[in-house]
């Protein structure tokens, strides 16, 4: 880990610079560049997922194969989520993720099935962006990443750190690690297919798909982090009249 320390320090500095912002607002100083990246992502998405009228008319439920790929990809994220659970002072969640990874990687055939879920061991989401939030770092500025999509400066820093501290990355070397990466990518593509129509409708039917993606990402992320739900912080359409 030692060679990574300067990188970590730089990322912390970057994330820490970003001051917290009031709710319902999104800081987006890179909007012009972000919109260019979004246009690129949109073209890529349409290239790998051609739109058809048939799919729009009568969407099919996710196939068993797609769900297996999705599960296998998500399974590989559990060790990293466990590490972040520890970093956030949630050892019980870390333990649940370790147990889930152990059961589903073995009995669940490399994560293709979910016997752990059947006995009540659910995944406990954890990433380093969340850890930074727990440590008091604000979300920073909105960033649209090539291929990966919407994020914030804090969550970009989190992604980089997650890649560096991933226990799987420490114990698995090439060429096996390429296989793991391929499983993750296939999982993401399967997720995209499962969400099919919903994401298509945001990307293709919005007047401003960039603004909708930004809104959905930031609102959902704040929800994940427990930043929403305060009784005084809700949209009241009657208050402004």
């Amino acid at each position: 880990m030692t060679p990574h320390l300067p990188v970590l320090a730089a990322l912390f500095a970057l994330a820490a610079c970003a001051a917290p912002i009031p709710s319902a607002e999104v800081s987006d100083p890179f909007e012009a560049q972000n919109r260019q990246v979004h246009a690129f992502n949109l073209g890529l998405d349409r290239a790998i997922r051609p739109r058809g009228d048939a799919a729009a008319a009568d969407p099919a439920p996710p196939s068993a194969g797609a769900m297996m790929l999705s599960r296998a990809g998500a399974n590989l994220g559990l060790p990293s989520a466990a590490v972040n659970g520890l970093l956030q002072g949630r050892p019980d969640d870390a333990l649940a993720n370790v147990a889930r990874f152990a059961v589903n990687s073995t009995v669940g055939v490399l994560g293709l099935f979910d016997p752990a879920g059947a006995i009540g061991i659910s995944a406990r989401p954890g990433d380093f962006g969340q850890t930074l939030h727990v440590w008091g770092v604000g979300e920073g500025d909105f960033v649209m990443l090539p291929v990966l999509g919407p994020s914030t400066t804090r969550d970009v820093a989190g992604r980089v750190v997650d890649a560096l501290i991933d226990p799987l990355g420490q114990v698995v070397d090439p060429p096996e690690s390429y296989g793991l990466a391929a499983v993750r990518v296939r999982g993401r593509i399967a997720d995209r297919a499962r969400l099919g129509g919903t994401i298509d409708s945001i990307l293709d039917e919005s007047a401003d798909s960039y603004a909708q993606l930004r809104l959905a990402y930031v609102q959902n992320r704040r929800f994940q982090l427990g930043q929403t739900g305060a009784a005084e912080d809700f949209e009241d359409p009657y208050a402004a009249q």
Binding site: A24, D208, A211, Q212, L215, A216, Q219, N220, R221, R222, F223, Q224, T228, E235, P237
Partner: peptide, 10 residues
Amino acid sequence: GVNMLAVERT
């Protein structure tokens, strides 16, 4: 966390 009023306002 994603609320319909905000989505439709956008």
